[in-house]
């Protein structure tokens, strides 16, 4: 093992090429492997159970493989976009374009919800406008690689792409509106009195092999945490795939039910989990005939708006700004839900 590690440290580029080949090879093997596996079992391939098993044996490794690959690559990309560097990008930029930049950087900057407050204050201290800071804070947890990968793996690139575009739009527009409302006085007094700081970055270049380490670290941390949700999600999907009670939810979460989207947004607020945790629910609702827009609105609401997060935000924001934040974001998600239902 030590020799492998040191080889990796000396040849990070070769490792990346090799890993990419192995990854694609495994990916190509998924369908034949799952078919072979099911053929070994004493069940009829065409039966509901056979079809459910094939779906499970194909989808589980597929989603995990995709997620591992993307989280690894994102871990490397993240090491280029530290919060300090993102702050430097955004400091003293004028609103509008900076909102777009902030929401986009939210995708690639590593972000943990426990850092939300220090980040929020640190951005403001360095002269990042309030609305731009919000654009970043809305986008970072909502539009992330885990959510996008899972949506892509389970529902295809169209759904993932729409989620990306509309999620960014919510973050950009909600942040811009909050900026227009000039609510700086609704920051807690101690936050308003924080001394300004100069945004800086330590410019020591990190060698590629250390960036690989941060890729491995992300895989260990993220995939290690979310695999169980994915397994449950796929098991639910597989169960339904085989037995098809299709339109159970359609009558009250279908496209024609206009109040389903607002209800989904409201239902999502008290719930709090990450993108992976909500996937089993999404899977179950969709498979039972709920409309995609309604379900995605629910997903966005669960991730972007949550009671525990508001309690934390209360330390730095006065009630009125929190209420504005929730209202603006909820309206954005509502519109996204209706657009999805209209388009798909």
């Amino acid at each position: 093992m030590p020799t492998t590690t040191s080889w990796l440290k000396r040849n990070p580029r070769k490792f990346l090429v090799l890993a990419a080949f192995v990854w694609f090879g495994l990916y190509r093997l998924l369908i034949p492997a799952s078919e072979t596996l099911v053929a070994q079992l004493p069940v009829e391939r065409a039966s509901p159970l056979g079809s459910a098993l094939q779906f499970f044996f194909y989808d589980t490794p597929k989603v995990l493989l995709l997620l591992t690959g993307i989280v690894f690559v994102m871990g490397i990309i993240n090491s280029y976009f530290t919060p300090e560097r993102t702050r430097l990008f955004l400091a003293r930029k004028s609103e509008g374009f900076a909102n777009v930049l902030a929401a986009s950087l939210g995708i690639v900057t590593p972000f943990c919800s426990c850092s939300a407050i220090p980040l929020f204050i640190g951005f403001l201290q360095a002269g990042v406008p309030l609305g731009v800071t919000f654009s970043f804070l809305i986008s970072a947890p909502m539009v992330n690689e885990v959510a996008l990968t899972l949506l892509f793996a389970m529902f295809g690139w169209k759904v993932a792409g729409l989620y990306l575009v509309l999620g960014l739009s919510v973050a950009i527009i909600a942040g811009w509106i909050i900026g227009r409302l000039h609510m700086e006085m609704y920051l807690e007094d101690w936050v308003q009195n924080m001394p300004p700081v100069q945004a800086t970055v330590d410019d020591n270049a990190i060698p590629l092999n250390e960036r690989l380490d941060s890729g491995f670290e992300s895989v260990r941390e993220i995939v290690g945490k979310v695999w169980i949700y994915i397994l449950v999600g796929i098991a639910i999907g597989a169960g339904i795939h085989g037995y098809v009670p299709e339109d159970f939810m359609a009558s009250f979460m279908g496209k024609d039910v206009w109040w389903a989207v607002p209800l989904a947004v409201i239902a999502g607020i008290p719930m709090y989990t990450n993108a992976a945790g909500v996937i089993p629910i999404v899977q179950a609702l969709l498979a039972k005939g709920a409309a995609l827009g309604t379900v995605l609105a629910f997903m966005m609401s669960v991730i972007a708006l949550s009671l525990p997060e508001m309690v934390i935000l209360r330390k730095v924001l006065k009630i009125r700004l929190i209420a504005t934040f929730v209202t603006v974001v909820a309206c954005g998600i509502l519109i996204v839900g209706y657009i999805f239902n209209l388009v798909l």
Partner: peptide
């Protein structure tokens, strides 16, 4: 305490 944490000028915790 968040106010004390911010004295150190960090953007991400821990």
């Amino acid at each position: 305490d968040i106010q004390q944490i911010m004295m150190f000028n960090v953007l991400s915790t821990p």
